[in-house]
Simulated scan of single mutants.
Amino acid sequence: MEKVDVPENLDETAPSPHRIQLPREWRGERLDRALTRLFGGHSRAEIQEWLAAGRVVLEGRRPAAKTRVAGGEWVVVDPPAAEDRDEAWVARPVPLDVVHADEHLIVLAKDPGRVVHPAAGHMEDTLVNGLLYRFPELAGVERAGIVHRLDRDTSGLLVVARTPHARERLVAQFKEHAVDRRYLAVVQGEITSGGHVEAPIGRHPRHRTKFAVVEAGKHALTHYRVERRYAGATRIEARLETGRTHQVRVHMAHIGHPVLGDPLYGGKRRFPGGLDEAGRAFVGGFSRQALHAGRLTLSHPVTGQQLTWEQPPPADMARLLAILEDSAT
């Protein structure tokens, strides 16, 4: 066998990108498993993220995680820089609303306006900063245990893995669409009945900060059910079967019923009918998407027990719903 450039449990201080020859005896092994053996400090889920982000090139092509290696071929791996990964995240006393916590997972109720991951402009006031402060052991878990996200201005339930094993199991559930996520939303216009939107989502071709239904996008499926109709607005429950960025917001806008208050996808604001002056002022000033992740069901990553959490909407959305109810009477 030819020399392997990088041994198992690769030294992260070595120059990047890494050029590695896969051992011939690994023939038939999944590529994500093979790379997890080489990069011993990273979980399989993180390796899969590298593959999805195009950070791995196998014999001149960008492979899928499930690719079976032939053995003996060369792979180039360019891991994210340390400043782009968990190592740069710091613990800070950010308030957390903990709904559930055991030795394997944590469930949070996220307030609107709170960013999940540190990023430019929000390096020390995010949920991750607060998690690292309150649960220091999360420093040893990839992405501080975060397995899914909510947009900054979307409120609701978020699950966090407390151990590497729990994170891998939870990530698998999300990939298998085995996690049931239900959103409460108020959308513009009157929807007559429930249904679903099955349309691929990808980057907007002109506005790179937005997403859109595009032919080359990733498969996305949203189910929705009408809970209450108002004059010019509808309260719905949306259930995600996939988890694309801005999925509910993009899909509802795509069918002509954008989420009320949505600054990216809402278009020209249409006021529900029957509002008094105070109600119209409140709705006019509602500057975030009226979207709340109110119900979460999953299997416990260790016991397998099916667990469900429910969380009422925060004060601003509760008041919006009350105003709409008053306008309907």
Rank of each mutant, 00 (worst) to 15 (best):
M1H: 11
E2K: 14
P7C: 13
E8K: 08
L10I: 06
R19W: 05
R19A: 11
L22I: 14
L22N: 03
W26Y: 15
G28C: 12
R33T: 04
L35A: 10
L38E: 00
F39Q: 05
G40S: 07
G41M: 10
G41W: 12
S43C: 07
E46D: 11
E49W: 11
A52G: 14
R55N: 12
V56M: 10
A70N: 12
V75W: 02
A82S: 14
D84L: 00
D84F: 05
A88M: 05
A91W: 00
L96A: 05
V99Y: 04
H104Q: 07
P112A: 12
P118Q: 02
D125V: 01
Y133I: 01
P136S: 13
L138A: 04
V141T: 07
E142Q: 15
V147L: 06
T154G: 03
V160D: 00
P164G: 10
E176W: 06
E176C: 06
E176D: 15
G189F: 02
I201Y: 01
G202F: 08
P205M: 11
F211I: 00
F211H: 10
A212P: 09
A216I: 02
G217K: 01
R225S: 14
V226E: 00
R229T: 15
I236K: 00
A238F: 04
A238Q: 00
E241H: 08
T242G: 09
R249H: 04
V250A: 14
H251F: 13
H254W: 12
P258Q: 13
P263C: 07
G266L: 06
R270S: 09
P272C: 09
E277T: 13
F282Q: 11
G285C: 06
S287Q: 08
L291R: 06
H292D: 05
L296H: 15
P301V: 04
V302Q: 10
T308Q: 13
W309Y: 13
P313T: 02
M317C: 05
M317H: 01
I323F: 04
